[in-house]
Write a protein that binds this DNA or RNA. Structure first.
Lengths: 226, 226, 226, 226
DNA sequence: GATGAATGAGAATTCATTCAT
DNA sequence: GATGAATGAATTCTCATTCAT
């Protein structure tokens, strides 16, 4: 075999090919291209995805893709930006209600799992592809991730404040906890997507149970020592 | 630009190129090739890695790589197998002392973080590359991961037993917790590798604190409900 | 697919691989190599045949093949020479009894069809491979063919003499007839080999009927004119 | 020496290289490519022919050849199909006048020899290359050959009918005669091509004399017996 | 005499990218 | 705005051939 068509048994990518329609406004065409690109990048991987297939799935000719998005690199970057923004927006929307820190975290997690479950290709692009294709791209998602980690960090800090236990948790420690929590969420997102029997709500509940209880213990000053 | 050489500014991969030495026994050469391949696959990604570069870094000609390892696909598989086995062995060795469940978990985590920190390319190959390059490879690591998850699951179950609290934790829930814990560890491994100021011991401590306390709470039957 | 392995469904070449035996006299080893080479060249074609496979089938290491036969080209030439000589010898043996021209032709044809049926790979090498691989090789078989054509030519001339009809057949015409007869025989050889229900004897009879009757007519001076 | 460039002293293939002309309609370019491919396949052989050289002779870049013809295998198949169709059409055209069986045969032979003499590379591709490169290709020409053999068979049968001698010739025997006749023609085609002093007409006459007389004898019930 | 180790040179095939219309 | 036509540059993989032992 020449090379592996990664991510798909026979090279067939699920989902409909956009019917070739003439004369659409540029903004719409661009979104169609990004839709196609996210799908292909997600299923094939950045390198294995070919501009040919993306153009075909988008229902346009290749030169048009180049006209609008300049290069494979920029196209990929555009995908990352759009999907990162969408994910952050989804989480933000979920949390928008406010309330105590735990409820906010709960809401954020549910929104996160719901969004990643609904757009699996986008999640793969962000989590698996972008982070493994070297600098220009990894940096792009790192920004989004930082945003989310910062948000979680603030929630943990707030929770500590609510419990009047701030001094017990060093700032550095809080950062580590947020990282671990986000990492666990990311890991569960992949797990939940792969296993149809686990809903977004279930995944969020599992993690929440795990995390909140642990945080509570820590905030009480009880910690595990070797 | 033709295409991105992912993972490095100018295509230079760090580390020494093996000085071309003639007439080595096959077993030795094979290990050199696998060393080179792990490095290149880790830094460039599966698709972006070229057999040319791997051969060069290994200090041999390309045909020899093919003579010994048959194809890019098989070479990659060989890398995955070797590194998966090495990682599992490292964790197993770390835990070998026995003792109570929490100490075993602690030992295992430390070994895990130490090993991944020491061989970052190998970790990238296992965690980031293999899992995103489609079936033949993803399955290979999945086996290893299952082994580790099963081990963690048994530790949690044992801890519950030690605490005489078995009935409180459903089997399904334990599985979810193990997944989350392993996911958090995997995530922290990447984080710790990227940030020199976090040692394996530190990473393990953070996670242990987080996890053990949380597990304790859960075993007490206290859980978070929306 | 990279390229076609011509002449075999799955690349498996029929017949036993010579068991690797140490220390044989050179002459014997050489014959084993030629046997293997004829088989592989016949089944795969000159270009598609690999020295690797030939060595393996011969039961020796590749360097030994080079030591004895120098190069693929010379190996192929050696095959051609051996098999051409064997075929000519077989025909010569068949005819050795002497007698009237028609009986000699009949005997020669039977020997020819019997030999090619018995060694199909050798026949393919001579008839199909050597003639299509360019000058050094085509010339080699051309020599053998000329020998046979000359023999047939002399038989026809003799037959004409026996029938006291020489003046009716120009020399040039006799040459053309011999060519046609030999061509028909070659063509029938391929046909008979492919079709198990046609024996060497049957093939020879068909051709003899066709040819002798025609020759008789011609010698009578009756010829077809547009 | 690396390997033999079969079929030419120094690798130079006779005939003009198409002057590189830009922007031709696809259909035209495809024919140019097939022209080049037939020439190279005919002179070098299937395996020895390189896509590089074919592209160069066709006056286009290699990717364009792949864009239009997909692979070496498909390109070869396309050559076979085109040339087989052309040859059959030429013979059919030659015979189209009708008339008694012998005149039809005569016309067909003349057309056959004229066509193969005019396109020697095409004839080599059909007769020598396609038949020796394994199944996908051999089958392709076999179809064409069957068509021709069937046609000749019907002519012989008709001739027998015209001579009111049907019972003398078994069906099986007629088939064998047709095979022999076609084989002789194929063989003479190669011979005539190699020798400039033999015209298509001359070759056809030789064969016709040989064959028709022989057939007549057979139809009279006179046959050679050992 | 015999071989395990090794390679230079080329083969088919693919891809991102650009004109000319 | 949109595209059919075209290519330079890689990439994977194979093969005939040679040493050093």
């Amino acid at each position: 075999m020449g090379d592996v068509k990664a991510g798909a048994v026979d090279g067939a990518v699920g989902g409909a090919v956009v019917k070739r329609q003439k004369r659409m406004p540029r903004a719409v065409r661009e979104q169609q291209m990004l839709d196609a690109a996210v799908r292909i990048f997600g299923q094939r991987g950045y390198r294995a995805a070919s501009m040919d297939e993306i153009a075909e799935v988008a229902g346009v000719s290749k030169p048009l893709v180049y006209l609008y998005l300049n290069s494979k690199e920029e196209l990929f970057t555009a995908c990352i930006r759009r999907e990162a923004a969408a994910l952050v927006a989804a989480v933000r929307d979920g949390v928008s209600g406010g309330g105590p820190a735990d409820r906010q975290l709960w809401a954020g997690l549910r929104a996160f799992f719901a969004h990643t479950a609904e757009k699996p290709d986008a999640w793969v692009v962000l989590h698996n592809q972008a982070r493994t294709q070297g600098e220009p791209f990894a940096a792009e998602v790192a920004v989004m991730r930082e945003e989310i980690v910062a948000f979680v960090t603030s929630l943990i800090a707030e929770a500590a404040r609510e419990a009047h236990r701030k001094p017990e948790l060093a700032e550095r420690e809080v950062a580590g906890l947020a990282q671990a929590l986000v990492g666990a969420a990311e890991s569960l997102a992949g797990w939940a997507n792969g296993d149809a029997s686990v809903s977004a709500k279930g995944a969020a509940a599992t993690l929440m149970n795990f995390a909140w209880a642990g945080l509570g213990e820590l905030m009480e000053g009880r910690r595990w020592v070797p």
